Computed example of a mutant assay.
Amino acid sequence: MTVAPNTASVARKPSIRRQVFGRLGPRPGLQLVILAGVVAILIVLGSNIATTMARIGVTPGFAFLKSAANFEIGEGMIAFHAGDSYARAIAVGLLNTAKIALLGCCLATILGVALGVMRLSSNLVLSGLVRWYVEVVRNTPLLLQLFFWIALAQALPPPRRAITLLDAVFLTNRGVYVPGIVVRDVSPGAMLILIGIVGVWIRLVWRGLRNKRTGLQAPLPVSLMSMFVFGAILAASDTRIGFEVPAVSGFNIRGGFSLTPEFAALLVGLTVKFSAIIAEIVRAGILSVRQEQWDAARALGLHNGKIMRLVVLPQALRVITPLATSSYLDLIKDSSLAVAIGYPDLMNIVNTTANTTGQAFEALLIVVLLYLALNLAVSALMSVYNTRVALRGEKSAS
Rank of each mutant, 00 (worst) to 15 (best):
T352I: 10
V130P: 00
N173C: 03
G342L: 05
A82C: 01
L224Q: 04
L209Y: 06
L374I: 14
M225A: 15
L317Q: 03
Q291F: 05
A162F: 04
F71R: 12
G29D: 03
R203P: 00
P5G: 03
L323K: 08
R174G: 15
R161Q: 15
V176Y: 02
G61W: 04
T260S: 15
A380K: 08
V245D: 02
A89N: 01
T356Y: 11
L337Y: 03
I181G: 10
A265Y: 04
A190S: 11
V33A: 08
S258G: 05
G37H: 01
A162W: 02
P60T: 07
R240A: 07
S127G: 06
I73L: 11
T140A: 05
A68L: 03
V58Y: 00
I163V: 14
V92E: 02
C106I: 14
I341Q: 04
N70I: 01
N139Q: 10
S327Q: 13
Y133I: 02
K306Y: 11
P26L: 08
S67H: 10
S275F: 12
N351L: 07
A373Q: 02
N173I: 01
S122Q: 08
L152Q: 08
A87D: 09
V222N: 01
G128F: 11
P157H: 09
Y133L: 11
A168M: 13
P188E: 06
D84R: 05
N351R: 14
L300E: 09
L313T: 13
F64T: 07
R213Y: 05
L152W: 09
G269N: 06
T51Q: 12
T109A: 12
K13M: 12
L146E: 13
V134Q: 00
L152D: 08
M308D: 05
R210A: 13
A377V: 14
A390I: 00
I56F: 01
L24F: 14
T239R: 10
A232L: 14
I278Y: 08
L209T: 04
G61F: 02
T357E: 13
A162R: 02
G269V: 09
D84E: 15
M1V: 11
G175W: 04
V20M: 07
F251Y: 01
A373I: 06
P5E: 13
W206D: 04
A324L: 12
I43M: 05
G305K: 07
L102K: 00
L391H: 15
V117L: 15
R203V: 05
V137S: 09
F80T: 12
R27V: 01
E244S: 12
L171M: 12
M347Y: 13
I332C: 06
V186S: 09
D295K: 04
C106F: 15
A114E: 08
T172H: 03
M118T: 00
A299G: 15
Q293G: 02
S67T: 11
R240I: 08
T7D: 14
A363M: 11
E394Y: 03
I195A: 15
V384E: 03
L166H: 10
A190T: 14
I78L: 14
V178M: 13
K306D: 13
Y385L: 09
P157F: 08
E135Y: 00
S335E: 05
N96P: 01
I41C: 12
L194M: 11
I241C: 06
